[in-house]
Simulated scan of single mutants.
Amino acid sequence: MTWNGFRGAAVRLEDIDLPRLGHGIGVGEDEIHALLDVEAAGVGFDRTGRPKMLFEPHVFHRNLFSAARETAVAQGLAYPKWKPGAYPADSYPRLAQALEIDETAALKAASWGLGQILGENHAAAGFASPQAMVRAFMDDEDAHLESMVRFLVTNGLDDDLREHRWEGLARGYNGPGYATHGYHTRLAAAYAKWSHIPDTPFIPPAGEGSIVIPRTRIGRGSRGSLVVIWQEILLAAGLSFDGGADGVFGGATETATKSWQRAHGLVADGVVGPKTWGAAG
């Protein structure tokens, strides 16, 4: 198969893609941003337009057998255990050598794109083969993000992301050595950063059905796409407040929320949790 230097259309994400795909698993833009920042510094393509990629010789080793494995070991492309500090600045020359030995095993042994999805995990990311996944990643960062969301759901990690259980998320996404690299603390720090940055307003398309009930609670001080969704619900119920659906959960939104909760027989605490979301759905 010809790979054209792993250069495709290289279309970047649009701002709306993060809240749109996050909505499908009940999270806001901030959670998605945090994971992207930690995995690939928020960018899915390198300076030459190739998907960001890290070749893992220990993964190549476990996907090879007999003579092919011996050849890869002899060329320094495969070894049985992960080694720290063994990564060159550009992994593509290694990948090119590995492709000559076994294309499928080579693509499986690399982590790709915004979410750094290991080619070995192509099925969990929604693709029939690593080749299909890499082709999609060459063309559009939207495919990177969609695959990351599928991977989270397939592996039951979407709960951890919704609940901000950073250790559980890091363990499932990055493996048992997550703490060595501080993935959990980096995720928490990235989320804290993005939680103070205004999000892209997003309302689910008409006819999509009831909202996805998030497990993330929102209340005074919250910001983002989930706040916009909640404010739209309040406005549709005839509860007006200063600022409208601006994505900022301030005092006026809190007061309107308490009125809405009282009208629906709920505890009027001004906090939108599962019971309040459920009554709205």
Rank of each mutant, 00 (worst) to 15 (best):
E208A: 12
D90F: 02
G156Y: 12
W3S: 08
A252S: 01
A132N: 11
K52H: 12
R7K: 15
A34F: 06
L18D: 03
I233T: 11
K275N: 02
R165V: 04
L21G: 07
H122M: 08
V43F: 00
D269F: 07
A40Q: 01
T104I: 15
L36D: 01
I16S: 04
S111N: 15
I101E: 11
R171M: 01
G177W: 00
S129Q: 09
A96T: 01
V271D: 00
Q261L: 13
Q231A: 06
V43G: 02
V248Y: 04
S240G: 14
H58A: 12
G85E: 06
Y178R: 01
L99C: 04
V272P: 02
H196C: 04
V228N: 07
Y87L: 10
A68Y: 03
T276K: 04
R12E: 13
A10C: 09
L114Y: 07
S147Y: 03
M138V: 08
T154W: 10
I218D: 08
E232G: 05
A34T: 07
V149Y: 04
A245I: 06
T48I: 08
G270W: 05
M1I: 14
V267E: 14
L77T: 13
L95H: 12
G278E: 13
R165I: 05
Y79V: 00
A192M: 07
W166D: 03
R165F: 08
R47W: 04
V134E: 09
P88Y: 09
N174I: 00
H61V: 06
G172H: 05
P176K: 12
A189M: 00
G85F: 04
A188V: 09
P88K: 07
V38G: 05
S195G: 08
E208P: 03
D246T: 06
V248I: 08
P176L: 13
V272L: 08
S240E: 15
G238D: 12
A124P: 05
D17Q: 06
I197V: 15
G238T: 07
G270Q: 08
G177F: 00
E103W: 04
I16A: 02
D17F: 05
R62H: 15
A128C: 13
F249P: 03
L234A: 01
F65I: 09
A96R: 02
F60D: 11
L234E: 02
G168T: 00
A136M: 08
G26P: 07
Y173L: 13
V27H: 01
S111L: 09
L235Q: 15
F45N: 04
V38L: 09
A252Y: 00
L114H: 04
L118D: 08
K275A: 03
L99R: 07
P51H: 10
G28T: 12
L114E: 07
D140L: 00
L266G: 10
G265Q: 15
R20V: 06
L235G: 12
S147K: 02
A237R: 15
H144R: 07
L64K: 13
E208Y: 06
N121D: 14
V228F: 10
Y173H: 10
A179W: 00
I203N: 02
Q261H: 14
V153D: 07
I218K: 11
Y79M: 01
V43K: 01
D242F: 11
S225A: 03
V248D: 11
E163R: 14
A10Q: 11
